[in-house]
Amino acid sequence: MSIKIVVLAKQVPDTRNVGPEAMTPEGTINRSALPAVYNPEDLNALEMALRVKELLPGSTVTVVTMGPPRAEEIIREAIYRGADDGFVLSDRRFAGADTLATSYAISCAVKRLGHVDIVFGGRQAIDGDTAQVGPQVAEKMDIPQITYAEELVSVSEKEIRIKRRLSNGTEVVEAPLPVLVTVCGSAPRPRFRHAHLLLQNRHLEIPVWTADDVNPDFDRLGLSGSPTKVKKVDSVVLTQKDNICVENTQEALNSLISNLVTNHIIG
C-alpha cells in the first residue's frame, strides 16, 4: 500500500515584502536585499504530499528543487517537516531558463528517480506567478495533470481524488496514477517543523545534482533552451498626476462628495 511521491519546490525572493532598499537607484533589483523563502504554495504541496504518505503508510516523499546551492535550505526545511529526502538540481548550465527549459530540467531529474506515482508542486511561484512549470513537467513526463488542487478527497495506490478550485467554483476529479498535482494556497496550511526531525537531520548533507547527473539534451537547458527572451525591462516610474489633496475633515469631505454627486460620478 505504499507509493512514491515527488514534491517540487522553489526558493524564491520574498516579493511580498519588497522595500525601497530592494531597488537600486537605477531602478533594477537588488536581489541580495530580499530574503529567500520557501515558495508559499510549494509548502501547501508538501503538506498534501505528507497527508498522502500518512494515508498510504510506507510511502516516500522526495523533494526536488532547482536553484543555486543555497536552495538546499528548503530541502532541509521540507525534511524537518516530514519529507524523507531530497536534492538540489544546481548547475550554471541551467541558468537563464524560462519555464520551458526549467520544466525540461526538472522532468529529466524526476525521470532519474525511476517510477514515481504522484508529483506534487505549488500552483505557482511568487516571483513569477506563471503557473506554467507544473503542467509543463506533466506533459514532459506524459502523465495527466490536476491543477489548482485545494483538497485531497481520497487516494489509493491506483487513483487519486482531488477537489479543484476553479475561477467560478469547485470540482472534484479522479485520475489514475501516475499523475501530477499542483496545489493552491487555499489548500490546508503546511504543518510546522518537528523538533526531533530537526535534531536528527540538522547535519544532513543534501545531495546536489548537476546537469550531467540527469542526462539531458544540453541544447534544451538554460538560456539556449528558452524560447522566451526578455526584450527590455522598464522600472516602474510614477509620474505624479495633478491631484487634489482633500483634508480629512467633515467639511472638506462634504464638499468632495457633493462635487462628485453634482458631476454624476456618484448617483
Binding site: 525572493p13 516579493t15 530592494a22 533589483i29 522566451t228 526578455v230 525591462v233
Partner: peptide, 16 residues
C-alpha cells in the same frame, strides 16, 4: 509586470 510588480517586462519569442 514582473518581480512582484517592481518592473514591467517586454517578452518576445523570436525563434519559435
Amino acid at each position: 509586470p514582473a518581480f512582484g510588480g517592481n518592473i514591467v517586462a517586454t517578452i518576445v519569442s523570436p525563434e519559435t
